[in-house]
């Protein structure tokens, strides 16, 4: 594995090995001093052409706990505002000595394009509506560890609710969840579904009421308010009446069912219930697990020879 651009780049075995490695990272994170020298001397550049404080901090925390040097580049305070091209930005940063780029970009495919212009590893931290692979890995980690079935989601049904069409989280999750054996049902209005679901291996439902009491996981996506203004839905009220998680719907969830959300939550839009009162909510656990997953990904890409890195403090 040279880059992590899409969940589709990973074999199912590779997905499971990242999840297993995240268990070791979680153990490190539980220590009084959660830091190991595994990536000492390596430089990780977080290059965010689109703002995302939480994802950037998660990656930077993961890199720091593995003792990598962190270089931060944000578009709002950079040469991009002076019209520098993507290629020139990447080539310039590469020339400073970077081992891995963590890239967030508003354009689908940008991380893949970047691989042409650098020898460093490229990790996709979210590109357009396309992919957000570490989110899918941390989601799969959260679900499998909660159900205590470490290598499979067989027999589980997961509802992904909201704006599938414009969601990189949904595209990544659907790929990983289905390959680990889960049944995925997409709950969304037609305008929020992609034109074609050919090859996705999913089913669809027209309202959350149809599925809320039979699924094992309710995965709520963030709804962007601006989508409501561009005539994609008649109104926010109509959306909420069919697709929001209300206290009534939350009460109908099975007792073992989990509630997940990639954040940030849009309270009063897709999430009308207060998630902190939903017993199955694992939303904050997702954030915690995100650090472990990103440590596992960074270590997989930059860790090099396993025997030397083991002595650097990661107990495999």
């Amino acid at each position: 594995m040279k880059h992590l651009l899409s969940t589709r780049d990973l074999s199912t075995e590779e997905i499971l090995s990242v999840l297993a490695m995240a268990d070791h990272m979680a153990e490190i994170n539980s220590r009084a001093v959660p830091k190991v020298p595994a990536l000492r001397g390596r430089t990780v550049a977080s290059v965010f052409f689109e703002d995302s404080t939480r994802t950037r901090l998660s990656f930077e925390t993961a890199a720091t706990r593995l003792s990598a040097e962190v270089m931060t580049f944000t578009a709002s305070s950079s040469s991009v505002n002076k019209g520098e091209s993507l290629r020139d930005t990447i080539e310039t940063l590469s020339a400073m000595g970077v081992d891995a780029f963590v890239v967030r970009h508003k354009s689908s495919g940008a991380p893949l394009q970047i691989t042409q212009w650098t020898d460093a590893a490229v990790i996709n931290a979210g590109d357009g509506w396309h992919q957000h692979p570490t989110q899918a890995l941390l989601d799969a980690y959260t679900i499998t560890r909660n159900f205590n079935e470490l290598n499979s989601m067989h027999g589980r049904t997961i509802a992904i609710v909201g704006d599938i069409k414009h969601s990189r989280v949904a595209r990544s999750d659907i790929d990983v969840f289905t390959r680990l054996g889960a049944k995925v049902v997409l709950v969304a209005p037609a305008a929020f579904l992609p034109t074609s679901l050919e090859g996705w291996g999913v089913t669809t439902a027209d309202s959350l009421d149809d599925v809320i009491d039979v699924v094992d996981v309710v995965y709520m996506l963030r709804i962007q308010r601006e989508r409501m203004d561009s005539a994609q839905m008649p109104s926010l009220r109509e959306y909420s009446s069919l697709f929001a998680l209300t206290p009534e719907r939350a009460a109908r969830m099975q007792s073992h069912a989990l509630l997940l959300h990639p954040g940030p939550i849009n309270r009063g839009v897709e999430m009308i219930v207060d998630p902190s009162v939903v017993p199955g909510s694992r939303i904050l656990q997702q954030v915690t697990n995100g650090i472990s997953i990103r440590m596992a990904v960074l270590f997989s890409l930059l860790g090099g020879d396993a025997t030397t890195t083991l002595s650097n403090g990661v107990e495999a």
């Binding site: 689908s108 990189r168 595209r171 992609p194 034109t195 074609s196 090859g199 996705w200």
Partner: peptide, 9 residues
């Protein structure tokens, strides 16, 4: 179509 749906563009 199908490609564009998967690619998220």
């Amino acid at each position: 179509g199908a490609c564009c749906s998967t690619m998220g563009v």
